[in-house]
């Protein structure tokens, strides 16, 4: 009984949210140019099915491309930063500073360099999502148990040995945990870039429909964006579960 409730609860909550939203719009007779009811958003989704699908596909692939870059770059930089305290101390302020820059401010520069299209979207997704990956990979390396390092160093293990045998494997849960967070950020990056300057993608669709006062279509695009985000989050959560089952079964820091 409890178990089935737990499985159903995400669906119940989602449906509940839509019901409240719909009811609020009807009871207070909210103008659909202000806030369309979900029924109107879904109607728009059906009506503009083809363009929405096309834009969704563009947003999905640009996000994934940017995210793939972020994974590769994030792991490499994370390993470098976690490897040496000197590099860590040197790079950290730079990275924090870079991460503090709102990426929306960078988009016009990217458009200047690469023109309107998918490249700025890919790069924005990359720029916004690599940071949590770097931080988590570096944290995974930095929190290695010093005693375990002692055990291996006393045997004559080199730094590379320790990294390969302990550091990199123990970083996996941190890495996969960060991917879940980073993928949703990557969507934000893509959509920001598409909103500022693009000719395809859900961000472009939202900007276009907004300027035409097609609020139901705006919300339809937003809902599709949320669906893509949830789907990718779930995908990476299941990857995480699969690769780091041991981390869920043992509490690493407690060593128990």
């Amino acid at each position: 009984m409890n178990n089935t409730m737990e499985k159903l609860s995400p669906w119940l909550f989602t449906i509940g949210l839509f019901v409240i939203w719909e009811a609020a719009c009807r009871v207070f007779q909210v103008d659909k140019f202000i806030l369309p009811a979900p029924s109107e958003a879904f109607a728009a989704m059906v009506q503009y099915w083809r363009p929405l699908m096309r834009h969704s596909a563009v947003t999905l692939w640009t996000t994934m491309a940017g995210f793939a870059l972020a994974i590769v770059f994030g792991i490499v930089l994370g390993l470098v930063v976690g490897w040496s305290r000197t590099i860590y101390r040197g790079l950290y302020p730079v990275m924090i500073g870079f991460n503090s820059i709102p990426k929306v401010a960078v988009v016009p520069i990217l458009i200047m360099w690469f023109g309107i299209g998918e490249v700025p979207a890919i790069l924005t997704a990359f720029l916004i999502s690599f940071f949590p990956i770097v931080v988590n990979v570096a944290t995974g390396l930095a929190t290695m148990e010093p005693e375990l390092e002692d055990v291996l160093r006393a045997l004559g293990a080199s730094k590379l040995d320790i990294m390969l045998k302990v550091g990199i494997p123990r970083t996996q849960p941190y890495l996969f945990g960060s991917l879940k967070v980073a993928i949703t950020l990557a969507f934000v990056g893509t959509v920001v870039s598409e909103t500022v300057g693009a000719n395809a993608g859900l961000g472009y669709q939202i900007a276009l429909a907004g300027s035409n006062f097609q609020m139901p279509l705006v919300f339809a695009a937003l809902l599709l964006l949320a669906v893509e985000g949830i789907a990718m989050y779930a995908a990476f959560a299941s990857v995480e579960q699969h690769f780091t089952r041991w981390a869920f079964r043992s509490s690493m820091s407690a060593g128990g």
Binding site: L148, L155, P169, T244, A247, R249, G255
Partner: peptide
């Protein structure tokens, strides 16, 4: 430098969970 002929064990077993 590291003596290489010693084995070590601590209060925390420090096993690799994977």
């Amino acid at each position: 430098g590291p003596v290489k002929i010693a084995g070590m064990a601590f209060q925390n077993p420090n096993l690799l969970p994977w």
